[in-house]
Amino acid sequence: MKVFETPTEELKRKPAAFTDRITTDGRFGRAAEPGRYRLVINRACPWAHRVVITRRLMGLEGAISLAVTDPVQEIIADDAHWVFTSETGSPGGKDPVLGIHALREAYLARDPDYTGGVSVPALVDVTTGHLATNDFGRLTLDLATEWGGPAREGAPELYPAALRDEIDALCEDIYRDVNNGVYRAGFAPDQARYDAAVTALFARLDALEERLATRRYLVGDTITEADIRLFPTLVRFDSVYHGHFKCNIRKLTEYPALWAYARDLFQTPGFGDTTHFDHIRTHYYYVHTAINPTRVIAAGPDPRGWLTEHHRAELGGAPFGAGTAPGPVPADERVPPLG
Results as ranks from 00 to 15, higher is better:
G316N: 02
T214P: 00
G327V: 03
Y114C: 06
H101S: 15
S90F: 00
T199L: 08
G148E: 10
G243E: 12
R334T: 03
F266K: 02
T140M: 01
R215D: 04
T140P: 15
Y285T: 06
E209Q: 06
W259E: 11
R152I: 06
G305C: 07
R312W: 03
S86T: 11
D238G: 14
Y183A: 03
S86M: 04
A151K: 00
L208Y: 01
L163I: 08
E74C: 10
S239I: 09
R295T: 04
T127Q: 12
E146G: 12
L103K: 03
L158F: 01
T6P: 03
P71D: 03
T268S: 04
A331M: 05
E146L: 08
I53G: 00
I291S: 04
I174H: 02
P160A: 06
K14V: 05
V296K: 15
I22F: 09
Y183D: 11
T23P: 00
G321T: 12
G339D: 05
A63E: 12
Y114V: 04
E333Y: 09
R216W: 14
K246Y: 10
A200S: 14
V198K: 04
V219G: 04
I223P: 15
D165N: 08
G92S: 15
L98S: 14
E74H: 12
G137R: 00
R304Y: 09
Y261L: 14
D302G: 07
S119C: 10
R295A: 10
P15L: 12
Y114A: 04
K246A: 11
L143P: 02
P150Y: 07
A200D: 11
N134W: 13
G137F: 00
L11M: 12
V335Q: 04
E87I: 00
A213W: 02
P336C: 08
E166Y: 01
T19S: 14
I223H: 05
L123C: 02
F245T: 03
R215A: 12
I291K: 15
D177W: 05
D78C: 07
D195S: 13
C45N: 01
E172D: 12
D142M: 07
T19E: 04
G35A: 15
G321L: 14
K246L: 08
E157N: 10
E209V: 01
Y114M: 03
V178S: 01
V120S: 09
D125P: 00
D332R: 14
F202Y: 06
P96S: 10
L11P: 00
T69N: 08
H244A: 08
A122R: 00
A155C: 10
T253L: 13
A185V: 01
A162R: 14
G93T: 05
R110T: 07
L57Y: 02
A196N: 14
L11D: 02
G26I: 08
A318K: 11
I167D: 03
D206C: 12
P256H: 06
H310T: 06
Y183K: 08
V335N: 02
L66F: 06
H242I: 07
M58E: 10
T224Q: 10
D238S: 12
L39Y: 00
T88G: 09
I100G: 01
N134D: 12
